[in-house]
Design a protein around this nucleic acid. Sequence first.
DNA 1: CCATAGATGCACT
DNA 2: GTGCATCTATGGC
Length: 201
Amino acid sequence: MPRSFFARSSLDVAPDLLGRDVRAVSEAGVVRARLVEVEAYLGSDDPGSHAFRGQAPRNTVMFGPPGHLYVYFTYGMHWCANVVCGREGVAEAVLLRAAVILDGRDVALSRRPKSTARDLARGPARLAKALDLDGSDNGADIVCGGLQFLAGQPVSAAEIRTGPRVGVAGAGAPTPWRYWVDGVAEVSAYRAAVVRAPRKA
DNA sequence: CCATAGATGCACT
DNA sequence: GTGCATCTATGGC
């Protein structure tokens, strides 16, 4: 996909990414995966977005030009990958939430040895792991970097479902943030954001 | 199948 | 110190 594909609002890019393929090339081999679930994040007016409180070291890539990866670390152990959307200076992105592995299943499985076929790339951190994406990929250009976006098989509007975001406080806002392909087993399970008990020292 | 708790490190207040 | 754009293991039905 050309960079211009991502130079739009993430709310337009997100549904358009469903059914398209990502190809991750590494020393271990090539993995191709078809996107079945994504989530849109805006800059301002989106309390759930990392960019909501303005630019900071972590989210700098979101404010840059479209078509670059924003990969962040969370929960002390997981990486999640986004593609930056919108014009430069407009901090929008689409989180890659789930995919079906089409090629390189053995390579992906070597990164997630205990995974079932259904769970191999079901969820943003699982998908990032299956594609071997981490902090070293933050800021990578999708036009010439290790993760490429291919045309795949675009999904018709009738097959697309929308709903609240997963694991984000305030996810019930009136905007259709999350998009997935209807009837696909690899779409991640919905979990409402939860407040956790304070830890002991 | 479903629900819950713990892991674990960093960004930010 | 608080809160994560999460996942896995475990225990109950």
